[in-house]
Amino acid sequence: MRLSSMADYAVVIMSAAARHCGACALAMPDGGKRSLLSAGQLAQETGVPAPTVQKLVSKLTAAGLLRSSRGVGGGLRLARPPAAITIADIVEAVEGPIALTACIDNGKHDCTLEGQCNVRPHWSPVNAAVRGALAQVPLTQFVEEA
């Protein structure tokens, strides 16, 4: 089992944003405006290609993990403190609900075993356990020195 490269890149981008912004939006008198980042800065710092950063920033912003300001002096910052953002939040922002098998998705009927599968009902607790494990890992853990 591996995360997709997009989910991995999203964690890298969010970690970089956390290193720059941290809880700046809550702790700084200027609302963190001095710590705003551009997508270009994130691409340069992380090595993730700029078009990929743009795509991920859109998803992370739509999920409420990043906040974006347009115009002169605009940029990106974390929408909430890094301790309040988990790896599960980031993965789900990019990939959707965490599930190890596609048959768990409602409306998908592309499995040839679906009609006689006895295993399908048992995936929900497994998926919940994986999501729960990722939900226990705050973004701050990825910012700290190893």
Rank of each mutant, 00 (worst) to 15 (best):
V72P: 07
G74D: 04
A63D: 00
S68D: 14
P97L: 07
P125T: 06
V119A: 07
A84C: 02
I104M: 10
R80C: 07
V91M: 07
P97G: 08
A88N: 00
L66K: 12
G115F: 06
G64H: 04
P82G: 03
N106G: 14
G64W: 09
T86Q: 04
A62E: 14
S69P: 04
I98A: 09
T86M: 00
I87K: 07
A102R: 15
A83F: 10
I85Q: 01
T112A: 13
L100P: 00
G64N: 02
P97H: 11
V119Q: 11
D89K: 02
T112E: 13
G71L: 02
R120W: 09
L78Y: 10
L66T: 03
G75D: 03
A83L: 12
I87P: 00
R70E: 07
R77M: 15
D89S: 05
Q116P: 00
Q116D: 05
N106H: 14
V91Q: 12
A84K: 06
I98L: 15
L100Q: 14
T61D: 01
G73S: 10
N127A: 01
H109L: 03
P97T: 12
V94N: 03
C111G: 06
H122K: 15
C111E: 01
V72E: 14
P82H: 12
I104F: 08
A63P: 00
G75P: 01
N106R: 12
A62F: 12
C103N: 01
E114I: 15
C103M: 04
S124F: 13
G107Y: 13
A99W: 12
A83G: 11
V91W: 13
G71D: 02
P125D: 03
G74Y: 14
G115H: 12
L65A: 03
I104W: 14
K108R: 10
H122M: 13
I104L: 10
L100S: 04
G74I: 05
D105V: 08
W123E: 04
K108C: 09
D110S: 13
C117V: 09
G75Q: 01
L100K: 06
T86R: 00
I87E: 00
G107I: 08
T101Q: 13
Q116I: 11
V119K: 15
V91K: 11
V91R: 15
I85H: 02
R77L: 11
L78P: 00
S124K: 15
S124N: 07
I85S: 01
P125K: 03
I90G: 03
G75I: 05
P81D: 12
A83Y: 05
V91H: 11
R80Q: 13
G74T: 08
S68T: 15
A88I: 00
A84E: 05
L76C: 06
V119T: 12
I98N: 03
T61A: 13
G115A: 09
T112L: 13
V72I: 14
G73N: 02
R77F: 12
D105M: 09
W123R: 10
L100D: 02
